[in-house]
């Protein structure tokens, strides 16, 4: 899937297809992975004072630093909205972000 055009209701984003689905209880594994993804997202977004919550196993709610909230269908949509709210993309190669996450 294109990483920039994730929209609610679209086909599953590629990022949600790589977990280990070989074990019994695949749905539970999907949910567990979503919850963990949200936890990781919140660590990455913390320096930008943004927060994500899981929503009904189908979307994420992104909350901006001034309280705005927006529903995002997948990771691509989350980072597109992060860019919109910040006015600039959040770059994983930014040395300041890398240092903040390494601390």
């Amino acid at each position: 899937m294109c990483s920039l055009c994730g929209t609610l209701g679209a086909a599953a984003h590629w990022s949600e297809g790589g977990g280990d689905r070989t074990q019994v209880g695949a749905r539970r594994e999907v949910l567990r992975e979503r919850i963990r993804r949200v936890a990781l997202l919140n660590r990455v977004l913390a320096p930008s004072r943004m927060h994500v919550d899981e929503w009904e196993e189908t979307a994420y709610i992104l909350r901006g630093p001034t309280g705005q909230s927006v529903l995002c269908g997948d990771l691509a949509a989350v980072f597109a909205e992060v860019q919109r709210l910040r006015g600039a993309p959040l770059d994983p190669l930014d040395p300041a972000l890398v240092e903040a996450l390494s601390a």
Binding site: S3, R37, L40, L41, L75, A76, Q83, P89, D91, P92
Partner: peptide, 17 residues
């Protein structure tokens, strides 16, 4: 960690795609 790798790549494609 696949979950984090996917997050990282999605972020990279958004910012440096």
């Amino acid at each position: 960690d696949w979950t984090m790798f996917a997050l990282w790549l999605a972020m990279l494609l958004q910012s440096r795609g």
